[in-house]
Amino acid sequence: MSFQDKISALMARPGQDPVAKDDVPWWMKFAGRAVGTIGGFLAMALGVSVCITLSATGILAGIWQILAGFVLICCEAPCCCMFVEHVQKLADFIESRPYWNRAAVYVGLSLPPIIFAFGISSFIGSGLIFATGVIYGMMALGKKATAEEMRQAANADNTPVAPSGMRSNLVAHAQPIGFSGAPVFDSNV
């Protein structure tokens, strides 16, 4: 066990598996956290400016954006909300979910403010929430294959199949086209 593994085991959460279960690079995990934290704070701040429009849809979009930013901060940086009672339970629940669940929730949270009151404040605030969802969606897709694995998969799919005869069809068991003549239209109908 290397020194880095020992330090990682000491810094792990209680009950956390010491071996990572996914192949997501460390920089992508930090990017998701950073964009989520910064995006949550900006979404809340810009949500206030969306509320100032004094239209019903603007107020609704601003409140939605403020709440979406707060949920994002609670999930991505629970240390910022440690005095709110159930934030750690929410953060642990979200942490146990797969990445695609986070991506779907964050993208779903980001769309209503943009739809209700499109403007620069709602676009930037909700856009950062959307970007966090995109990052988690990319994390859910997983690690890209090596170049050799992709070459092998491409060669396996492109193996040519020789035709079995002069009358071979593209579709198996396809019937030949019949020539029955031109259709007859009855004008008395």
Rank of each mutant, 00 (worst) to 15 (best):
K6G: 08
Q4I: 12
K29I: 06
G40L: 08
I63E: 02
P18F: 07
I73P: 00
V50W: 06
M11F: 11
P14L: 07
M28E: 15
T37G: 09
L60M: 06
I52A: 10
P78H: 02
A12L: 04
C81V: 11
V71T: 08
E76M: 11
C80F: 07
G15W: 02
L72P: 03
A31I: 08
A20W: 11
F3H: 07
L42A: 03
A77S: 00
L60K: 10
W27L: 14
C79L: 06
I63V: 10
M44E: 04
L72R: 00
G58A: 00
V48H: 09
C80L: 14
A68C: 03
L67A: 15
M28Q: 15
L42P: 03
G40H: 08
P14D: 03
V24C: 11
S8V: 01
F70V: 11
E76V: 04
P18N: 04
M44T: 03
D23V: 09
G40F: 08
K29V: 12
D22V: 05
M28Y: 14
K29Q: 12
P14G: 10
I38W: 02
I38E: 02
Q4D: 11
G36C: 01
V50M: 00
V71F: 15
L60H: 07
V48G: 09
A45F: 14
I7P: 00
R33G: 05
P14I: 03
T53N: 00
V24Q: 07
G39W: 06
L72I: 05
I63A: 05
G39Y: 06
T37A: 11
C80M: 14
A61F: 09
A43H: 04
T53A: 11
D23Y: 08
S2D: 06
L72W: 02
A68I: 01
A43K: 05
G62W: 12
D23N: 15
A61M: 01
A34D: 05
D5I: 01
S55W: 12
Q16R: 07
E76W: 02
K21A: 15
C80I: 07
L67H: 08
I59P: 10
K6W: 05
L60G: 09
A68E: 01
L42D: 02
T53Y: 06
D22H: 13
R33I: 09
D23T: 14
V50Y: 01
T37Q: 01
P14W: 05
L46N: 07
F3Q: 13
R13K: 15
C51L: 09
W27D: 14
T57L: 12
Q16M: 08
R13F: 05
S49E: 09
Q65L: 14
A20V: 12
T57G: 07
C75V: 15
Q16I: 02
A68N: 00
G36R: 00
